[in-house]
Design a protein around this nucleic acid. Structure first.
Lengths: 228, 228
DNA sequence: CGGAAACTAGACCGTACAGTACCCGTCGCA
DNA sequence: TGCGACGGGTACTGTACGGTCTAGTTTCCG
């Protein structure tokens, strides 16, 4: 679930009950706006709908956010950290304690497939892609700070596998990470992007994809049978 | 270059000079609308701009196309055939006469990278992805008839390589095709999708991607060193 | 050459939406 | 309890756009 961090990192998590009125409203607006933007896109989203869905007046929206663009930027910007944390967690969970490379890669692949084909993740991707030309700063930053960094992190995790003898030496760990991601995600991600929110993958399909991706990756990078 | 076929497949290609007025106008409208939709997206595109850019009155636009939705559908639908033909050609050129698998796959990868990272192809992709929820029929058809079919065709081309002893037996040729495409395209396509039209790939980068993709693919599917 | 069909320019209608102005109720404070 | 300030809601403004209508002009074809 993608949500947005409304209060810039406080030390102590304040109780929702005792939280001031204004930040509570701000949270509601961000949540509502996220929903509306993801569903209708930037131009299709109306500030009236955002206000209504947040249970708040338009005035309040404009008090918290200068205009529609800023609200959009806030939402998109707020998601990359979250997404990255989730992926980093996935790498740590599946790779860092692994004893068998194939099993670990398979587990990682499956977990990536599951988390990245969640509806709201897909909608966010579509939104960012759709508005890439209208908001090059915001969307470029999202890509650099979220997408690219998470692939770099995967490269580092793969390097740790190498150091433990589970993979052979990687000349370019980031490239290897992209290749793994491509093996795993290319097919389901494209279908999800183009085919709309319908057309869920068949049960068992994700397992097959994860399996086969791990096989190909290990054929090239596995330590047992070093390639050329 | 993506263009749209305005006249449904005539036997003889009629000379542009002698072409009737109506189809000529229709072509102009389609060309202008393609440009406007690709640049601004569906909602951002205005029919006034389409008419102006086509050098035509709005009335004429609405005489040829019932409304904005139909015009959009016509444009998106008209592109998948073209794209597919181009890809099929690429498979035939690079694979069917090949003697060396590595060289052939490298050449194919490079050609795919070049043709699919052309500006108008990327804009079309963004457009279809952006409107996937608004026009599930049209965009779903584009995906099925264009994207999926071209991957199936690649699977068939790979099978022909197998039959000539250049690859080992493929249990699922289509999956292998997706894996190859993922290895090649995942990184540059994502960057191109998210980073807007700017940020051209560095020279030499495409070659490296093509090279490394071919290496990984052959480690798994090459005939010389069969994998498990 | 004549007439019909297609095309043009532009005004026009209804609607939807971003953003604003103004009024009222509520809450803090004395 | 009374007062003042502030936050929130409603109603408004201006604009842009999809689509239509009219009236006058050009092009095609018999």
């Amino acid at each position: 679930m993608i949500s947005v961090n409304p209060t810039p990192k406080e030390d102590a998590v304040q109780d929702v009950e005792t939280e001031g009125r204004t930040p509570r409203k701000r949270r509601a607006i961000l949540a509502a706006a996220t929903e509306v933007f993801l569903q209708h896109g930037y131009l299709g989203a109306s500030m009236d709908e955002v206000a209504a869905k947040a249970g708040v007046s338009k005035q309040t929206v404009y008090k918290q956010f200068e205009n529609k663009e800023r609200l959009f930027a806030e939402i998109v910007g707020g998601t990359s950290d979250q997404l990255m944390d989730g992926l980093q967690q996935a790498y740590d969970d599946t790779l860092d304690g692994a004893v068998d490379a194939r099993e670990a890669l398979r587990a990682l692949a499956y977990r990536l497939l599951q988390s990245l084909t969640a509806d709201n993740v897909l909608q966010l991707r579509r939104l960012v892609i759709a508005e890439a030309d209208r908001f090059p700063e915001v969307c470029g930053a999202w890509f650099t700070n979220g997408f690219e960094q998470s692939l770099d992190a995967l490269g580092k995790a793969l390097t740790r596998l190498t150091e433990r003898g589970l993979l052979r030496q990687l000349d370019d760990p980031t490239l290897a990470a992209y290749q793994f991601a491509g093996l795993v995600m290319y097919k389901p991600m494209n279908r999800a992007m183009f085919a709309g929110t319908r057309q869920r993958p068949k049960p068992g399909e994700l397992e097959t994809l994860a399996d086969q991706a791990a096989n190909v990756f290990l054929a090239a990078y596995g330590s047992e049978r070093p390639a050329s």
